[in-house]
Measured scan of single mutants.
Amino acid sequence: MEVVDPQQLGMFTEGELMSVGMDTFIHRIDSTEVIYQPRRKRAKLIGKYLMGDLLGEGSYGKVKEVLDSETLCRRAVKILKKKKLRRIPNGEANVKKEIQLLRRLRHKNVIQLVDVLYNEEKQKMYMVMEYCVCGMQEMLDSVPEKRFPVCQAHGYFCQLIDGLEYLHSQGIVHKDIKPGNLLLTTGGTLKISDLGVAEALHPFAADDTCRTSQGSPAFQPPEIANGLDTFSGFKVDIWSAGVTLYNITTGLYPFEGDNIYKLFENIGKGSYAIPGDCGPPLSDLLKGMLEYEPAKRFSIRQIRQHSWFRKKHPPAEAPVPIPPSPDTKDRWRSMTVVPYLEDLHGADEDEDLFDIEDDIIYTQDFTVPGQVPEEEASHNGQRRGLPKAVCMNGTEAAQLSTKSRAEGRAPNPARKACSASSKIRRLSACKQQ
């Protein structure tokens, strides 16, 4: 084909351009004929944790799935940006308080904090938690009735009371019990989460009196709706648990309003109706937990002794299953770290194939690490110290990083047969305790 000078094309009309061969290198194709290559998922490591896909996002930050490269346990990490926390009232204080509380709590029905990582340079905090497959609110939203069968609701409620009793025994008032803060594992274990607005009572406090509340409006008791200066913290949790039980068994809320002012007005009056299909035992329990006067409201001991709580409820309806993943529609909620794991395991070791967030990740503290002497050669063979940054567990980050890069360049065919977990650990520049 004859090559045409581009400067001469402006002298031709459209018809003349076609005659000189423009149609031979300008093609129009339908979008259905285009085959897009999927974007390669680059592996990203935060300390010893391999990052997966997004699980959810809230006002405080994002939650992603991660894999512990040492234990191969599935975890969830809450990623918090200090810049964003400053824009939220009491944001930083709530996060630090939640970390302090979770560090000393150990119960099967309370979410466990596994690790805390802090990135000084990017001003990011990573709260590594045990993995929960789904939230209770997500399960309720997945069915038209917006409720659980009585047998399933009873099982979840009993676990909620177990976890709540443990928190109260530790002198902690949750203040925000609701389905949105109750998570579930694949085995059906309920976990109380989000202790950001919780309050730890003084060890020598005479009672459970509280003065502040930041919980969700629909789950607040009349004493808070009416603006009382002080109130019983434990009875606030009992009320919120009662509203939660009402919601998961009926699909409704005892109090509603077009806006928060109308909602608080209705809560302050204390008038509500219980659907007739709840039955006398459940209705009596709800009335005891939603008692207007805090002094007359049920205690956890009274809830445990109630006939509806103690009764064994046979399954009359099919239980609400864990819904498919909202993004991938995966009904099994498979591990989202698998594509990243395959990338590390299947590809040659190259620095361009993975990302390490930083050479140094500070753990379990908000301060910069200490310094240790770096050896410097002298005339008599002895070495003197220069400062060298280290990880919180004493690992020399720069030395590990250099060693990792040197190993990656060394030709050794046997290394390709290593397991995925050992490869992740070798790529991680800074081991965590």
Rank of each mutant, 00 (worst) to 15 (best):
K146R: 14
T230G: 02
Q220W: 12
R333Y: 13
M51Q: 15
E342S: 11
L164T: 04
C430F: 12
R211C: 09
L245Y: 00
Y118C: 03
Q152P: 01
P314I: 12
R39H: 07
A397R: 12
V133A: 11
Y131H: 08
I274S: 05
P203A: 05
S213H: 15
V368H: 06
L285P: 00
P149N: 11
K235L: 09
R147T: 00
R104Y: 03
S240D: 04
P221Y: 00
D162R: 13
E407P: 14
V110P: 02
A417L: 13
A417E: 08
I35E: 15
E265Q: 04
E223G: 01
V110H: 05
E130K: 10
A397W: 04
K48Y: 11
P281G: 04
G394R: 08
L102A: 04
S193L: 03
S283W: 04
Q7L: 09
D258V: 11
E349M: 10
P413D: 14
E57R: 07
V128C: 07
N266C: 05
V243I: 11
G251S: 06
D277I: 12
Q364V: 07
M129G: 05
C151P: 02
D348P: 14
R304V: 13
D343Y: 09
A218P: 02
K403Y: 14
H379K: 11
P319D: 13
L9A: 09
E407I: 15
C134T: 15
N94Y: 03
P149S: 06
L167C: 07
H154W: 04
G233C: 11
A198P: 05
G279Y: 11
G394V: 09
M22S: 15
G15T: 15
K388H: 07
P323A: 07
I274L: 06
F234C: 06
A318I: 12
S19H: 00
D358S: 12
T32W: 13
E349P: 11
G385W: 09
Y126A: 08
S325A: 06
L117F: 04
K178P: 00
Q37A: 10
A93G: 03
E199Y: 06
S216Y: 00
V173A: 01
R304K: 10
D207H: 11
Q137G: 03
P6F: 04
S169P: 02
A200M: 15
P339Y: 08
A410W: 15
L117N: 12
I46P: 02
G135H: 15
L182I: 14
K82W: 10
T244I: 03
L67R: 03
I88D: 14
D359I: 04
K83V: 06
D343A: 12
R211P: 08
K175G: 04
G163T: 00
E138C: 02
E130S: 11
D176S: 00
G15S: 09
T328I: 09
K82S: 08
P6L: 06
K403D: 13
V173H: 02
G408K: 14
N119M: 02
I267T: 07
K269P: 09
N266D: 07
C210M: 05
A273N: 10
P369C: 10
E120A: 04
V77W: 04
I88Q: 00
A389I: 14
L400W: 14
V173P: 01
D53L: 02
M335K: 06
V128Y: 11
A225T: 15
I161H: 00
K296N: 07
S421I: 13
P221V: 06
G91F: 05
Q305F: 13
Y292E: 13
S169W: 09
T186Y: 07
Y362W: 10
V368Y: 13
Y340N: 06
M125A: 07
